[in-house]
Amino acid sequence: MGNYRVLAGPEAFLPPSAACAGVVLPDPGQAHIHGEIFHEDVAMEEAAKRFLSAKVPTIFPGPMVLWNWNPKSAKKATAIKAMYDELKDHNPGALLIPMPDYRPKYPKINPEIEINPNHPNLTVWHNKIDVCMFVGVHCHQANLSLKIIRGGTNCYTIAMCAMAGHEDAMLSFRDATPDKIWKLVEVIKDVRKSL
């Protein structure tokens, strides 16, 4: 592994992918923070701290959780909404902005109400988002978006990935299930109590 660390940007107009810079994905039960592998519990606590200390913590739910296409997606949606409610209760500035699909929008998207993977920086800039979490976004689109956000904004990115995780996020979980999302909700509650 190289010395490269995945940090909040703006890094460059076209930053290299973190994978090219030597960042590797976590194994099951693990997560990465800035490219370094930790136990998943450590990452949960770090994610909670980041969310709770943010000015505009935001969750970006993608098509796989927005659309009710199988029972698991409905369960994840309930958990994500609970997480948002907890964040909103802590900080009224918290946002929940959908990424309904990946179609390019012409003439432009409305950054107040949606995020598009082809220009996610517009939504981040417009809403002054400083910490965000991607969940339910297909991996190839998430990688694209995370890289653009890292390249052009100072937003801290968290990925709640249902597959193997994302090198291009500053903090990435893997194998996301409804239970894992609920666990993060509980960790946020616990950390909040300790603040």
Partner: peptide, 13 residues
């Protein structure tokens, strides 16, 4: 299968 999860209906464009 063309339906939105209830939790997110109001935030969908």
């Amino acid at each position: 299968k063309i339906k939105i999860n209830d939790e997110f209906y109001d935030i969908m464009p």
